[in-house]
Design a binder for these strands. Structure first.
Lengths: 355, 355
DNA sequence: CCAATGTGTGACAGCGTTGTCAACAAACAG
DNA sequence: CTGTTTGTTGACAACGCTGTCACACATTGG
């Protein structure tokens, strides 16, 4: 391992190259490469020798060179434009775990909505970095133009919670309708008969699914739907406050309010406190998402947990599998959608209604 | 632009290379390279011609090739191990903005604390990806072994909020002591004389600074410090609940409680609600960090905003400047610490005490 | 007017890896 | 025992770019 004559700057250590390993193990560099890539047809003894040399020299392959020579860059792009830190954090944790396990690295890129040409921006990123695949989070996963561009480019991608499953070859998602249905059913089983609902942002696909879940549950249990118990919110705390105030202004009060996300549920809670309604004694409140705020309210908020981390990990799995398969055979994988199970998290904000 | 004979897989588009651009502009590839890297000694007319060809072919340089040939990878590593989504999100947004602006990409890596050898893990990452520099967030920025390894390796790095400024060549930070001092002073100015304090996690460097700020402010305003008004918390909601209960159990109640972070302040709020104390009428409550929860409580929480995004952007700036300079001259930059200004965010949880 | 010094440009050799293909040994079928 | 397949290895040429150096052509000072 000789210091390269082109070395520059104050780097203090020299790194072993595949050449050094080959020399150490007394094989050709190609053989080292084979071991590195887990290719077949290397005698176990030889493989062992190479592995030993690798460890001895503390060698790790140069990604740039691998990317240049081969076709894989061992880079996965994570495209995001999500206002919710909690959501993105979960996605990153999940995706990162799988990528690392498979020897891939995660490149994150924000797609600011104000950017004129998100599509071009993404394509440029791909051209530069030669990522092996990309993970799309909502609302980027909703962007038709982006999806089309990726398809055109032949870039493997997986969408997290896309609005229409049929649009994408690979995706992971959760059954928002079913989750809302379950939560509503849970409230009904507790004995609630008048359940208010605060709708989510009208442009958010999942929001209407949640509302539909609520309606279906009511109808399936023979409860008459009451228009006055439903208000249009926008996923914000403030809209939750407004809606809760509107709902609680009526003459026939509900005994429970189900909000389409936790922030709005927190707003409803604030209103209840303000009006002197005890939770859950006078009013049960349920949220959706299990964001950190759900455990920081008093009382703790009953809500629905989306398995974000697991979903992201699943997304990464799907993507990595496709990348490997493609590299192996060149055949595109069939469309695959993996559904993840939600979970009702029971905290102290819901209970049997006072009669 | 001929399709490479080594092309493989279902890629549907071929990308222009520097060769294509050179041919198009009728210059040598080296000249294109010069234009790409903004080198001197290219006649304006030639530069223009090259730029035109680049645009015409929609060319963007291959990072892997650049990294392999030159010494820069145009990759910045973001090392993190932060339990707070809000914090990490801010850091990423800030860092990403600057990196993109300078043509760099962001590679994120988690350092799970349970991992046996964080240092080795980081070094391997560096060896593989050849990042040009790394950004360290707390608590990784506290890890002596990691810092030492990076120094040894000659890898430029910048630390966000390191415990000791002198330890690192490059860092950004905020004056936690001063911030707590200011908040305490604000409460004193409102007329509060008995102010409770909930301390942060004893192992967190910033936590003790915040406590010191509280003490200094009291002492500077001639207020006697009372041991019973201070409790040891752990940054969690639950510890906030416990501490607030303990503080409010005494005979002489405080008129305000200042918690070392927002989660604990939320806990204190819950306790106040539970005890029937009105906020801010009977009890003012202040937090620290301005996490999303501060706007989701009722009433809104008065707290201190750390300019996370700006700090991260500043960190990226510092790092990128160093990288460029180093590449230019090979001389290491002098140690640089940039301090950022905090800001008191006034919401509804604090007011003049009832007499 | 000549040497000495810039400028602008290009030829060419790497950078550290993988793909291709050939060489050879061992195992197998006829 | 021969011809063929299968398994194992290596030589060598890419991959797309940058560093080095050389060269042609101004420009300058004596």
């Amino acid at each position: 391992m000789v210091k390269s004559p082109r070395a520059k700057g104050p780097r203090t250590v020299t790194r072993a190259t595949i050449n050094d390993v080959a020399r150490e193990a007394n094989v050709a560099i190609k053989t080292v490469s084979r071991v590195l890539n887990n290719e077949a047809n290397v005698r176990p003894a030889t493989r062992e020798r190479v592995l030993h040399a690798i460890k001895a020299l503390n060698y790790s392959p140069n990604l740039a060179a691998r990317g240049l020579a081969g076709s894989k860059s061992f880079l996965i792009g994570l495209l995001y434009d999500n206002p919710s830190p909690h959501y993105m954090n979960g996605v990153q944790i999940g995706a990162l775990a799988r990528c690392r396990a498979e020897g891939f690295h995660l490149l994150v890129e924000v797609c600011t909505p104000e950017t004129k040409n998100v599509t071009q921006q993404i394509l440029t990123m791909i051209a530069q970095t030669r990522v092996d695949g990309v993970i799309l989070t909502p609302p980027v996963s909703d962007n038709e133009a982006v999806l089309e561009a990726l398809r055109r480019d032949g870039m493997p991608y997986v969408a997290i919670a896309p609005p229409k499953l049929s649009d994408v070859p690979l995706c992971v998602h959760m059954d928002d309708l079913r989750a809302a249905y379950d939560m509503t059913t849970y409230l009904l089983k507790l004995g609630h008969r008048r359940i208010g609902f605060i709708k989510g942002h009208p442009q958010h696909g999942a929001a209407s699914l949640r509302y539909n879940g609520y309606r279906e549950a009511l109808s399936d249990h023979g409860i008459k739907f009451e228009r006055t118990l439903v208000k249009q919110g926008y996923f914000s705390f403030e809209s939750g406050v407004d809606c809760a105030n509107a709902i609680l202004q009526g003459s026939a009060l509900p005994t429970a309010i189900f909000a389409a996300n936790d922030d709005m549920a927190a707003g409803a809670m604030a209103v209840a406190h303000q009006r002197g309604l005890s939770i859950p004694g006078d009013l049960s409140i349920a949220g959706f998402d299990d964001t950190p705020v759900a455990s920081l309210t008093w009382p703790g908020l009953t809500t629905i947990r989306q398995p974000i981390v697991e979903m992201a990990a699943g997304a990464a799995d799907l993507l990595l599998a496709t990348i490997k398969e493609r590299h192996h055979a060149g055949t595109p994988a069939v469309a695959l959608a993996r559904r993840f199970q939600h979970e009702i998290v029971l905290r102290a904000s819901t209970a049997v209604p006072r009669t």
